[in-house]
Amino acid sequence: MSSLTVQIHEDKYAVSAEAARITQNYLMETLNKQDEATVLLATGNSQIKFLEALTDSRKIDWSRVNFLHLDEYLNIDKDHPASFHTYLRAKVENKIKAKSFNYLLGDTLEPLQECIRYSKLLRRRQVDICFLGVGVNGHLAFNEPQAENFNDFDLVKIVELDLNTRCSQVDQNYFQSIENVPKYALTVTIPMILSVKRILCLATGENKAKIVKIMLQNNISSKCPSSILRQHSDTTLLLDKCSASLL
């Protein structure tokens, strides 16, 4: 039996507005109970309007909020236009005054040590809320299909990117060609994601309809990593009419 809450909204703008409303209320409630809150951020097109709406909020005391993020390409400069560091710096960090902003360093010379360093950061505090998107192949962060990743011991690992993932980055105009897309990345693992108190997952657009159907209606399986969200105790999946069209 799934514990996942599914919402279907008119379009991606309505999804973004509702996700921002939920997050604002949740962070305000959290900060009423404790001194700080910790947020685990996602990137990608599904997050753009949502993060824009969220960072416009003047009701959240951002000076009490710590930020981490889910993944980063390996061997990519932090200032590269397609790096997630660049994305989050522009869309979140530069728009608010957070207590802390902790980046995965994709341009590290020692990726295994970077996994250890970031794992230590994640262990220091309970993550209160995580934002996710769903890859066209069903991945969460960069946890790719059929990688048997539901029982990872590590919190952060190095992964080889699925060809579909790399192609989607070209389709979304983050890279000019498949040759330019890194083959490896650093990612927070599935067990780490599932340890978060509250999860919001956004999936919009017709190109997500097929994987959303698989995610919700097929067996929970590493063939579709996002299906594991059906086992989390407090996750909301926000869809628009296009991504929900096959349900």
Rank of each mutant, 00 (worst) to 15 (best):
D11I: 03
K120R: 14
S222A: 14
D171I: 07
L121T: 03
S57Y: 08
V15D: 02
I76K: 03
E160W: 08
A98V: 08
L88N: 01
T165V: 02
C224V: 15
I220S: 11
K213D: 12
K241H: 13
T235F: 01
L155W: 10
E114L: 02
L237V: 04
E110C: 10
N102A: 04
K197W: 06
Y118Q: 01
E52W: 07
D152V: 03
A53Q: 14
T108N: 05
I211M: 12
I214W: 13
N164I: 15
Y73T: 06
V136Q: 14
M28V: 13
I190R: 01
S2W: 10
L186Y: 13
T43S: 13
Q172G: 06
Q169S: 05
P81M: 08
N180S: 10
Y103L: 10
Q7D: 15
G44M: 00
L155C: 06
K99H: 11
L4W: 09
E179G: 15
L163N: 12
H139N: 05
L54P: 02
L54S: 02
A53Y: 11
N66E: 05
E144I: 06
S226K: 03
E110M: 09
I60Y: 14
N137E: 05
A19W: 07
P81V: 01
H80V: 05
N173I: 00
V136I: 15
